[in-house]
Design a binder for these strands. Structure first.
Length: 330
DNA sequence: AACATGTACAACCGCCTCATT
DNA sequence: CAATGAGGCGGTTGTACATGT
């Protein structure tokens, strides 16, 4: 073909449009409609190429163009459509009335794409990234987790509730563990970055085991609602000064990190806290005292106190290091 | 206040498809 | 069937504005 670009014609203006040019274009199309873009500039008295006129009209001057921020619904729709259509911006634009392909493309490139990358989600495949570049996204992911204002690919929503920051933290930790465990021969130097307190004579698999334990604790804390943590801490404090009678169910199985603890307080009745890592849910439910088996109760005073002592010790001695496990926890 | 850096978005560029000649 | 022209699309750039130092 080899056809030269129309804007190469001598003397045609390029760059930003002036209000006067906009008026001329609007007036002409208002009177004559959209026709031959090639001839339009001359007929409308514009020193522009037809292509430039078409772009200005379709992307900016068209009366049905919707201006302003993208709504949550629009973001969600763009995400869903992009997952199916890819960078077919014009096709995506047909599903968003009043939005132009250019506007959607710009919004994707400046906003949504970055958000997905920060979350460790590949903006092309819409799948979690598992490559080593994930490490580079850690600081951003942490920021995102703390802001709690982004999405998961699971629910295709860009607007998270406050607690959804936990999901991002979980993804972060899960990705990290996946990253560290995917290799058949773990790199000891890399592993030690994440477990600096591991004894020097530990072998890679020992260090790996420690990291798994740490990540499980992080996940556990991420799942634990703040109110439940505070409640447990409050109970532990009150128990330590003899403020109530505490009862607990059997200790949790060591292998799955789930546990159930029942606390009976003389003043406030009984509460049961159930935390389970297996299905990524956490709940705090109240039960009546009669539902409790006397035989399954033992003093919780020591176990709650021990738990928090251990936890504090972990924060200080193992998790507080340059890599930022403490940042994850907080 | 001045400068550097980052962000958003309008506009451009090059290529492709399709209708017409 | 090949050449040509017009419209359209996606990637990229330029610039104004915002924010940080």
């Amino acid at each position: 073909m080899g056809r030269p670009p129309c804007c190469d014609e001598f003397g045609l203006k390029k760059g930003p449009w002036t209000p006067e040019e906009d008026e001329k274009l609007k007036d002409f199309i208002g009177k004559h409609g959209q026709g031959n873009w090639r001839r339009l500039p001359k007929l409308a008295g514009l020193n522009r190429c037809g292509k430039s006129c078409r772009l200005r009209w379709t992307n900016y001057l068209r009366p049905d163009i919707k201006r302003g921020e993208f709504t949550d619904e629009e973001e969600k729709l763009i995400l869903e459509l992009h997952a199916v259509l890819g960078n077919k911006w014009s096709a995506i634009a047909t599903r968003l009335p009043g939005r132009t392909d250019n506007e959607i493309k710009n919004y994707w490139n400046t906003n949504m794409r970055k958000k997905l990358l920060q979350m460790g989600i590949d903006p092309v495949t819409h799948q979690p990234r598992t490559d080593l570049n994930l490490l580079a996204t850690m600081p951003g992911l942490l920021t995102v987790a703390n802001l709690g204002s982004l999405t998961t690919s699971l629910d295709n929503s860009l607007q998270l509730q406050a607690d959804d920051g936990h999901l991002i933290k979980l993804q972060l930790v899960q990705n990290l563990v996946q990253l560290l465990t995917c290799s058949a021969t773990p790199n000891l130097d890399l592993l030690r970055l994440f477990a600096p307190a591991a004894p020097r004579n530990h072998r890679p698999n020992d260090v790996l085991a420690l990291i798994r334990q740490l990540s499980s604790l992080v996940i556990l804390q991420s799942l634990m609602p703040t109110a439940a943590r505070e409640g447990l801490q409050h109970l532990a404090n009150s128990l330590s000064v003899g403020g109530g009678e505490a009862v607990a169910a059997a200790p949790p199985p060591a292998d799955d990190l789930s546990w159930k603890s029942t606390v009976k307080d003389q003043g406030c009745g009984t509460a049961t806290c159930v935390f389970a890592t297996s299905n990524s849910t956490a709940s705090l439910d109240s039960i009546s005292p009669e539902n409790m088996s006397r035989s399954e109760t033992t003093s919780l005073k020591g176990s709650i106190s021990t738990f928090f002592e251990d936890w504090d010790a972990l924060n200080l001695d193992v998790l507080d290091n340059d890599f930022g496990w403490k940042e994850i926890l907080e």
